[in-house]
């Protein structure tokens, strides 16, 4: 079985983003970028399935400008066998649907048995691409997954849902999106990086894939959130209680 893993280049999760003073967007100049944490978990899950003999090839794919090759290298260093860069312009007006349309075309070419994505990007926080991709392809979906097991008829996934946990059996091919507790991604060592340099990154684009991807909702403005009014330090449990009673919350 072949596994396709779409990954996204995003701001490093430790960085606190700032809004540009003209409110046009957030300021990403000179900000540390990384592979989206959920995508990293997806790569790890795919590589483990191959190591366990449940899959024979792991293909990482990213949509975006040239810089996404850095994150594709990370995926290759983690153990992906090859990568595909779907090039789009720096200022391409893509939304989750557009990304899903490009990925759907790629899935039709590559015919993977499983597509493993992150459940959400930590920048856009959309939580949409996997579900959209599954819809476009007519594949079953297992979202927010914290456990998975390949079984005879397909794959069983444990989903983290509001009420607790849910187990679904999906027929293959299927789309799965990862939650945090699926695994802890491996640490990349220097030899892995060396080896990854010899692995191929293929190049394609919307035109070659025969897709004119949909634009996303228009971004009109970005504002910082309402700041919270400054609080105070209390010296004792007694003072805390007094304050809470004054504030009439207990």
């Amino acid at each position: 079985m072949k596994i396709l893993v779409p990954i996204k280049r995003v701001i490093d999760y430790n960085v606190r983003v700032r809004v540009k003073s003209d409110h046009s967007d957030v300021d990403l100049a000179n900000v540390k970028m990384a592979i989206n944490p959920f995508c990293e978990i997806a790569v790890e899950a795919a590589v483990r399935l191959r190591e366990d003999g449940k899959a024979d090839e792991v293909v990482a794919v990213s949509v975006g400008p040239k810089a996404v090759q850095e994150q594709l290298r990370t995926a290759l260093a983690m153990g992906a066998d090859r990568a595909i860069w779907v090039e789009t312009a720096e200022d391409a007006d893509l939304g989750p649907l557009g990304i899903a349309q490009l990925l759907a075309a790629l899935v039709r070419e590559e015919q993977p048995g499983l597509v493993l994505l992150g459940k959400q990007s930590i920048d856009g926080d959309n939580n949409q691409v996997g579900q959209m991709l599954a819809g476009l392809l007519g594949y079953p979906q297992g979202t927010f997954v914290s456990g998975l097991e390949v079984v005879d008829e397909g794959i069983e996934v444990v989903r983290e849902v509001d009420g607790g946990l849910q187990t679904l059996a999906l027929r293959l091919p299927a789309v799965i999106t990862t939650d945090l507790r699926l695994n802890t991604p491996r640490f990349i060592r220097a030899p892995d990086i060396m080896k990854s340099r010899r692995k191929p990154i293929a190049h394609t684009g919307a035109e070659q894939l025969g897709v004119s991807p949909a634009a996303g909702p228009r971004l009109l403005a970005v504002h910082p959130p309402e700041p919270r009014a400054g609080g105070i330090r209390v010296e004792s449990v007694g003072e805390l209680l007094e304050r809470l009673r004054q504030a009439q919350v207990i």
Partner: peptide, 15 residues
């Protein structure tokens, strides 16, 4: 979150 993006994609729209 599980349902709506799938429905949106089938309708050919964003969410």
């Amino acid at each position: 979150k599980d349902l709506m993006p799938r429905a949106a994609a089938l309708l050919g729209v964003n969410q």
